[in-house]
């Protein structure tokens, strides 16, 4: 029975800090994104060729999509939303590459030979997803304060009546719950997908993993889309807080 580990496994340390296999894969994700960006923007021209075409399709498509969700605030939200989408997409799909999760070190633990993978999908590590969730929720509050100034606190501290006061407290709790929700939604989907692929590959190595790989491809894209779209929707709600009541 293959050994699944909920936490990412440490493979080395750097200047006293732990380096886990998902951190290594995060660096690989960053390298892939940087190399693609460099290739696409080397010789920018009004008549795009090669990688620039693909980059324009991706950026243009995402811009139109977020414009549908957020209207005219798209200029403020698009950098973070598109960055989240691209990083989460490449991280999710990293877990499907051959070698990720299968190539690693053998060592003894729990009384038997256990393999520690060298790479692991970055978003299959709760640290990564909670970090992304914290960035997202704090960015939403930042956009709210930047758009409304001090009046943004009027979303959480409402002193009109006791009932509205409770609503404000509930809004505050709901913002904190969003951190948990964002982090666990992404982590649960990708980690469960990894475990599913491991188990299916363990049971029937030939042909049978193919539909599951296709499903994981689809789920990886949907989760990246959902994460960035939810950020855009919540940021839009935060920025337009005072408008319905006026």
């Amino acid at each position: 029975m293959p050994h699944v580990s909920l936490a990412a496994e440490k493979i080395s340390s750097l200047f006293g800090l732990t380096v886990t296999n998902s951190l290594l894969a995060t660096w690989l994700t960053m390298a892939l994104l940087f190399i693609f960006t460099w290739l696409a923007t080397r010789r920018l021209s009004l008549h795009p060729t090669g990688a620039q075409t693909l980059a324009e399709i991706v950026v243009g498509g995402l811009y139109d999509f977020f414009q549908q969700v957020t209207g005219e605030n798209v200029k403020k939200f698009f950098p973070l939303a598109a960055s989240l989408f691209l990083f989460i997409l490449v991280s999710n799909w990293m877990g499907l590459l051959p070698g990720v999760g299968t190539i690693g070190f053998f060592h003894h633990a729990h009384g038997q030979e256990v393999m520690t993978p060298l790479f692991r999908a970055p978003t299959a590590d709760l640290n990564t997803t909670i970090a992304l969730a914290l960035i997202t929720v704090f960015a939403i509050q930042y956009f709210g304060f930047r758009a409304l100034g001090f009046h943004y606190t009027g979303r959480f501290i409402i002193l009109n009546s006791p009932i509205m006061f409770a609503v404000g407290i509930l809004e505050l709790v709901s913002e904190i719950a969003k951190i948990i929700s964002f982090g666990f939604r992404l982590f649960g989907n990708i980690f469960a997908g990894e475990v599913l692929l491991t188990v299916i590959a363990f049971l029937i190595p030939f042909v049978a993993p193919l539909p599951f790989l296709a499903m994981e491809l689809f789920i990886g894209m949907i989760q990246a889309l959902v994460f960035s779209m939810l950020f855009a929707v919540f940021a839009q709600i935060a920025v337009s807080h005072g408008e319905e009541h006026s």
Partner: peptide, 25 residues
């Protein structure tokens, strides 16, 4: 619809993660 489905599905993910924690932690 996709938005609503993402919210509903995250509850299923919570229970999946709790199940994993029960079994493996």
């Amino acid at each position: 619809m996709i938005l609503g489905i993402a919210f509903a599905e995250s509850i299923a993910i919570y229970s999946l993660v709790a199940a994993f924690i029960i079994k493996f932690v």
